[in-house]
Design a protein around this nucleic acid. Structure first.
Length: 347
DNA sequence: CATTCGTGGAA
DNA sequence: TTTCCAAGAAT
């Protein structure tokens, strides 16, 4: 491992650590749209979108700008209907985030007279806002001192202090938050928190970090950063099959709106029993992952009179000219495009 | 406290 | 190809 030997950890000289981090960030910090605003609403939207989601996805595919165009302020979002809200979120995943963001907007209007609370307790009281997001809004929007610990910060701190305890276990979580709070530059909370996270994306990245050019390498006592952080839990992936019916009638197809639970409110190909569909021709097959499952999605050509074509709860006939406008998960959308495209070519 | 909730890009 | 995992929160 090529890394300059450090004799001291950040807590040995916090002021020097903060200064080094701030200097580096002031010269190398990236220019994201949410760093150009101090509007807590715009900051919150970015933070919720970025939960477990990469910056490249949120920015590159236009989710952030599109969302703010459609819902420019708290009042607009609070009044948003499900379909338009989900359509704006389509492809981002974790769709519950969108609904909770709207509930937060409602709460700001109703409980705070339309003004975002500028304290941790007030922010934590809003739906979908946990410890990290509350600290992010506090520091990024209001530039007020509050620690944040996300995946980046956890990795950076575990390496700086050479802590091999599992970062998802309670004792290490407690230590991470305490350490983030102790290290926090209370004169420059926005810059400090931004810098700590960005250090985790650039130099102190997962796997093998780039310690040679790290601005705080002289504060980092880790011996083998590639082995950190340690994570305890990893669940086994389960393979499952999903059999769906492509049913057509008079320029319409049968689609099914999802009820409570996963991808609630979105439209999918109707899922049926494998035994009913497997005798029918297989039009398409693709794999996609969702949570701890690897799903093999099968699309069968199902005649309108077939028992599997019978309508069940949530099923509706949708015009072939209109289906693309619905809110549809990426896997189903891709399968539909492939299958209907083929049919159109034959016809 | 363990599990659930999506998706896609990169190692 | 498989595996990891990314600005987490709710239950």
């Amino acid at each position: 491992m090529l890394k300059p030997l450090a004799r001291q950890s950040p807590t040995d000289d916090p002021a020097a650590f903060r200064s080094a981090l701030r200097d580096w960030f002031s010269r190398n910090g990236k220019d994201y749209p949410w760093r150009r605003t101090s509007d807590p609403y715009e900051v919150l939207v970015s933070e919720v979108m970025l939960q477990q989601t990469q910056i490249a996805t949120v920015l590159g595919r236009g989710f952030y700008s599109r969302f703010l165009e459609r819902f420019p302020d708290v009042a607009t979002l609070a009044a948003a209907e499900d379909d338009i809200l989900l359509k704006t979120w389509e492809g981002l995943g974790y769709y519950r985030r969108a609904r909770m963001l709207r509930e937060s907007a409602k709460a700001v209007l109703e409980r705070h007279d339309g003004v975002f609370p500028a304290d941790l307790v007030g922010l934590l009281g809003l739906p979908g806002i946990g410890r990290y997001t509350a600290g992010a809004v506090m520091s990024f929007a209001f530039d007020r001192p509050a620690p944040i610990v996300d995946g980046n910060v956890a990795r950076v701190l575990a390496r700086l202090f050479d802590r091999a305890d599992p970062i998802d276990a309670t004792p290490m979580q407690k230590w991470l938050w305490e350490t983030a709070d102790v290290l926090l530059d209370r004169e420059h909370p926005r810059t400090f928190n931004s810098a700590l996270m960005e250090l985790g994306q650039t130099h102190c990245r997962p796997g093998v970090p780039d310690c040679l050019s790290c601005p705080v390498a002289s504060f980092c006592v880790t011996k083998d950063p590639a082995t950190l952080p340690v994570k305890a839990k990893k669940q086994a992936i389960e393979e499952i099959d999903e059999h769906t019916a492509l049913v057509r009638r008079d320029g319409m197809i049968l689609l099914s709106r999802q009820g409570r639970g996963r991808r609630e409110g979105m439209w999918r190909l109707p899922v049926r029993e494998k035994a009913d569909l497997s005798p029918l021709p297989l039009l398409h097959r693709r794999k996609y992952g969702i949570t701890r499952y690897r799903v093999s999605l099968h699309v069968h050509d199902c005649p309108a009179g077939h028992p599997a074509a019978a309508e069940t709860e949530g099923d509706e006939w949708i015009s072939l000219d209109r289906w693309t406008e619905l809110v549809i998960p990426p896997a189903d959308r891709a399968a539909l495009e492939a299958v209907l495209g083929e049919i159109k070519e034959i016809a």
